[in-house]
Design a protein around this nucleic acid. Structure first.
Lengths: 339, 339
DNA sequence: CTGAAAGCGCTTACAG
DNA sequence: CTGAAAGCGCTTACAG
């Protein structure tokens, strides 16, 4: 059982005041270089670590940022996307010696709000990362009221008045639509995620805008990110008779559902219909056929999100480098539009 | 910007001492029921929350447990297993009003050790969860030396002298081997994960033991959990000529690699060889063919891990309910051994 | 360049 | 049942 070494112990051993030791440890002026060296050497030798609670209590930062995930845990398990974003977040935090407090609250509305309130009240975190933004998202006024530094990730609500990190939404939509246009598709279905999510609305708008420019007609169908629902919706649409020759699904799992429904309906992919996924993953690679997908560099995105929040916390101007352009991984699920 | 409400504010407003307020808030004896009610009412009205740092500094728990993940982030992204375990952990922590401090450090050896040291020194967490145990795992003496409560999850090293939560290892091995035996397989390959991991060693022993009992011969091949390596190893083995008629892979991603290699070698699955995955996931469901897999209830396992750690922290006897038996999901990748 | 002191917001013996 | 006081381990003006 390691004995706790305090700043007082160091001061006593060195014949200094606690203040001097503190200044030395924190690299602040007020001590000679020699004293500083002695302090640092002893601190290392005795394996001194600052008590995070004592530090925070006397006004310092907590060194922790918070993330509340309010998606269905089962969905989180199937979509690799979030795990990759998480790992990107971690990579940026580690460099800044920051920790991540993670909370998965499920989808019951409002449960996430209670967490932010508590974190702010308890002074647990220096800031929070907000994902999956909704229109008139209650989290935005809440964090402002709480004085909790925050960054919006994934979609910028106009006038949200919070810093935001956004993917290359325009480029993504263009890449997908242009690929289908080049293959001769003139009618496509956009199988979107829940329309309550702002980035789904944006995406749909941008897909439509890109399609308009090239004379492509878009039907939008609202899914819920699960394979089962995607399969059912696709089946229903196919029963309405043909029309669209290509499907764009908002995540990899739904894209698989589309492919399944096509198989069940006897529609060859890509012979009679093409399928594109908005997220790439191993699921897309091993699909039968493998699915053309947009690699949006989720880890890179996670990094940017964390960096933006750290910048807000530090009070430094945001140095967001901007999105790294996504890459469309063309696979066997897309082909020329049937004549 | 919410003004911070302190216990002193409450005391002043109510004409009480801070001590009385503290007792009332913490449900400790020393205040009348009426006083307690007044305190609680005002605390709620003013949205008072205890400062976590102040509480911790005066000896209380942090209300946070730590988890260091030292797997390759790309692997974490492809394997749904960990995300599900995480969500199980969260579900138990939420009930206990505990938070999770998460750290993903990559695979460089020793980086995780520095994190435990720091967390202990800074008094950041009340305990840690240890996954992916290795033989002579340096984390075990470390956490003991640091006095950091910990639980070993996934494999019990004999004499490790730390509480452990284990899956139903015997049952798992039996279920897999018996399924293959019933199908008439007499020679199988166990495509294991890295042998440095204790649970992989255990698993191999148990597979061999179960096989011995039924007269099945086992070859063990060591993989690294990736699809690419699994594919390569399988291809190499198949070039040595036939022999084994069934492959058991230690995770879903490797099982897919085996199937791919078989397809490339023109070996029909399950006609000429059967494939079983030790983990179930969407990847197994959508494989071509869908892969027979062991559903080990990862969320349930995560819950048990968190509960065990909370019990250690609370000093209460561990009430582990024991593993929920896994279920083998039989799919098209397993069939009768070829004659 | 260094030291004595107050303060952060709680908890907890100790008196009354 | 209640209050005054010390203490947790830091940081930070303020004197010297």
């Amino acid at each position: 059982m390691a004995e706790r070494v305090t700043i007082g112990d160091l001061a006593q051993r060195l014949g200094l005041s606690k203040a001097s030791v503190s200044y030395a440890l924190n690299g602040r002026p007020g001590v000679s270089a020699e004293t500083r060296a002695r302090v640092l050497a002893l601190a290392r030798e005795l394996q001194w670590y600052p008590s995070s609670s004592a530090r925070t209590l006397s006004g310092a930062r907590t060194g922790v940022v918070g993330l509340v995930l309010s998606r269905d845990p089962d969905l989180l398990g199937t979509e690799p996307y979030y795990m990759l974003v998480l790992s990107g977040i971690e990579s940026a935090l580690i460099e800044a010696e920051y920790g991540l407090l993670l909370r998965m609250v499920g989808t019951e509305p409002g449960r996430d709000l209670a967490v932010y309130e508590r974190w702010a009240g308890e002074r647990r975190v220096d800031g929070v990362m907000l994902f999956d933004q909704r229109r008139d998202d209650p989290r935005i006024p809440l964090v402002r009221h709480l004085g909790l530094p925050a960054v919006l990730n994934g979609a910028a609500e106009p006038g949200a008045a919070l810093p935001a990190v956004v993917p290359d939404e325009h480029g993504d939509a263009d890449r997908v639509v242009e690929h289908l246009r080049d293959l001769g598709h003139r009618r496509i279905v956009h199988l979107a995620g829940p329309s309550g999510l702002l980035h789904e609305q944006r995406r749909d708008q941008l897909v439509r805008a890109a399609a308009d420019r090239t004379g492509i007609v878009v039907e939008t169908v609202e899914g819920d990110y699960t394979m089962g629902t995607a399969e059912r919706l696709t089946t229903e649409r196919l029963q309405h008779g043909p029309g669209p020759t290509a499907w764009v699904a908002s995540n990899d799992v739904m894209a698989l559902g589309v492919v399944r429904a096509a198989a069940r309906a006897g529609m060859d992919v890509p012979g009679r219909m093409s399928v594109v996924s908005w997220d790439d993953s191993l699921l897309c690679e091993i699909g039968a056929p493998p699915i053309t997908a947009l690699d949006r560099h989720p880890r890179d995105f996670g990094r940017r999100c964390a960096q933006a929040l750290l910048a807000v916390i530090a009070g430094t101007p945001d140095e967001d480098t901007g999105p790294r352009p996504s890459e469309l991984r063309v696979r066997a699920s897309t082909g020329p539009a049937p004549a």
